[in-house]
Simulated assay, not measured.
Amino acid sequence: MRRIAVLTSGGDAPGMNAAIRAVVRTAAIRGWEVYGVRNGYEGLIDGKIFPLGARDVGGILQRGGTILGSARSPEFKTEAGQLKAIRSLNQFGIEGLVVIGGNGSQTGSLALHRHGFPVVGVASTIDNDLYGSDITIGVDTALNIALEAIDRLKITASSHQRAFLVEVMGRDCGYLALMASIAGGAEAVVIPEVEVDPEEIAQRLVRAYERGKAHAIVVVAEGAQYNATKLGSYFEKHRERLGFDLRVTILGHVQRGGDPGAYDRILASRLGAGAVEALERGEYGVLVGMIKSQVSTTPLEEVVSNKKQIDLKLFELAKMLD
């Protein structure tokens, strides 16, 4: 292995740049050449590949997003697109590829691996829904951004006797919502993994009002059956009995845009270095993640074919702590 490439794919996550930096610099120590790929798999197909040296990644450790860019690529989902991507890699003499991203990105990694190209994935998604890593790059920063928003909303809510439905990211996984609700002292949480009756949420708000609370917070995952908008519409019919004036706040991509905190910088650095080490020992077709505080590898076949489950005991804890 003398020449490798690195790309970022899917949704950006705070810490991706730290992972890119770690890949480049740990590879350079081994005397390898590193190339960057612009705009994920789309750039790979189009041959947007360029040299990336150790000094080129200086000053990016603390930056959010990804300097390489990311884009969706419908063409890469086809076999023809995958073969074009491999052809681009071969034209540049690249012998191994590091893919930093979440579920969709690692599905792409597996496709390249099945075609015989040496590829290693790095676990990165703010949803924390990727099998093969207890926590993924970007989660901690996104969670702290959501928590800061909740803390701010509680202040203004108390001033006006309001309840806020706060929607956080989580299309298929309620991890962010669940952790934000516990850390933020929310009255209720709504996640995709647990069916929730809106009337139960209404009753929780009423009980909070009757206890004399000046505010109430409900954290909602965007992918829940009743997201914040739907819950807001439901509660319109029951506003009189809630006690609180109700508002909906959708955080959306604000959670993606923060500069990575210390935890994500360290996690990304460890996983990026781990990807280079996996390539060096010839361990291809794996995801590098963090399992029980250790940098570990999981076959991409397992990563793609399994769904990561959240600990529902934490959901029960959130209910008890309201």
Rank of each mutant, 00 (worst) to 15 (best):
N17W: 08
N17R: 07
A18V: 03
A18K: 05
A18Q: 07
A18M: 09
A19I: 06
A19C: 08
A19K: 03
A19T: 04
A19N: 04
I20A: 03
I20C: 02
R21M: 13
A22N: 02
A22Q: 02
A22S: 15
V23E: 03
V24K: 03
V24T: 09
V24W: 09
R25M: 05
R25F: 10
R25E: 09
R25C: 04
T26V: 05
T26C: 06
T26H: 14
T26K: 07
T26R: 10
T26S: 15
A27V: 01
A28L: 00
I29R: 11
R30H: 07
R30D: 10
R30F: 01
G31M: 02
W32N: 05
W32K: 11
W32F: 15
V34Q: 01
Y35H: 14
Y35Q: 08
Y35E: 12
Y35K: 02
G36I: 01
G36T: 00
V37L: 13
R38C: 00
R38W: 05
N39C: 06
G40C: 11
Y41I: 02
E42C: 02
E42V: 00
G43H: 04
G43S: 04
L44Y: 02
L44P: 00
L44A: 05
L44W: 04
I45G: 02
I45P: 00
I45E: 08
I45Q: 06
D46Q: 15
D46M: 14
D46N: 15
G47C: 08
G47W: 11
G47D: 12
G47Y: 12
K48Q: 13
K48I: 00
I49M: 08
I49Y: 04
I49F: 07
I49S: 07
F50H: 05
F50D: 11
P51K: 15
P51F: 15
L52N: 05
G53F: 12
G53A: 07
A54Q: 14
D56Q: 05
D56S: 12
V57T: 12
G58K: 09
G58R: 12
G58H: 13
G59L: 06
G59A: 05
G59Y: 02
I60A: 03
I60Q: 06
L61R: 03
L61C: 01
L61A: 04
Q62I: 06
Q62E: 15
G64L: 13
G64S: 12
G64V: 11
G64Y: 13
G65T: 02
T66Y: 11
I67G: 00
L68N: 07
G69S: 08
G69Y: 08
G69D: 11
S70R: 12
S70L: 09
S70Q: 12
A71N: 02
A71S: 13
R72V: 08
R72Q: 14
R72N: 09
P74T: 10
E75L: 15
F76E: 05
F76A: 02
K77E: 15
K77P: 00
T78K: 14
T78G: 04
E79M: 12
E79A: 15
E79N: 10
